[in-house]
Design a protein around this nucleic acid. Sequence first.
DNA 1: CTGTATCCAGTAGGATACTG
DNA 2: CAGTATCCTACTGGATACAG
Lengths: 109, 109
Amino acid sequence: MINATRAVLDMLAGKWTVEIVYLLATGTRRYSEVLYEVGEISKKTLTQTLRSLEHHGLVDRREDPDLPTRVEYSLTPLGWSLTEPLMALYEWAAAHLLGARTPTQRLTA
Amino acid sequence: MINATRAVLDMLAGKWTVEIVYLLATGTRRYSEVLYEVGEISKKTLTQTLRSLEHHGLVDRREDPDLPTRVEYSLTPLGWSLTEPLMALYEWAAAHLLGARTPTQRLTA
DNA sequence: CTGTATCCAGTAGGATACTG
DNA sequence: CAGTATCCTACTGGATACAG
């Protein structure tokens, strides 16, 4: 059970992974669009993150053979299904971190 | 929304964090018990992880003044509440990683 | 028993330049 | 346009020894 949970967490582990999933949840994007719309991510890290997501089956990479190359990234059905438990995490955060405040936030508030 | 989600993920970020939460969900433990029951974790990392969980209000640290010192760790109500979205992640993994298989697993299967 | 201090290796991720 | 190659820094976590 820990292992299964960790497996999911590992899929989302990167610094920008969740943000990219959320972004693609709003629609297909080209490489450069993701690069632009995601805050200060480097191309190297973006490629790594997208490859990881693709490797785990959450994201689909579709390459257009025309020049200059066009590559489109989109969520797979599996990727979409993951947004559900992801929303559960968000709901928890909204209820407990914004509502009740954590000790951390109390200090800096 | 990304930020709130990331905040939760950051709470669970450590290599052993989730395992410790699951362990404490089965009952209060002493430091040495956690050390023993969690696979190959170092004392340094264990202390760091517990401190982080405590700092985020998920775990309660209770020190017994008697010598030799006895310290008991347990989940707070907030920590307990987190097991719910955590279960949602596990359920997703159970349904999609074990059931349908990811490309990754297909390759190595 | 419950840590802390120190040192060290591996990895994530940024900056920059280059390629098909 | 969509990356790759290279270099570099910071952080994570393990090993070991020491401390109250």
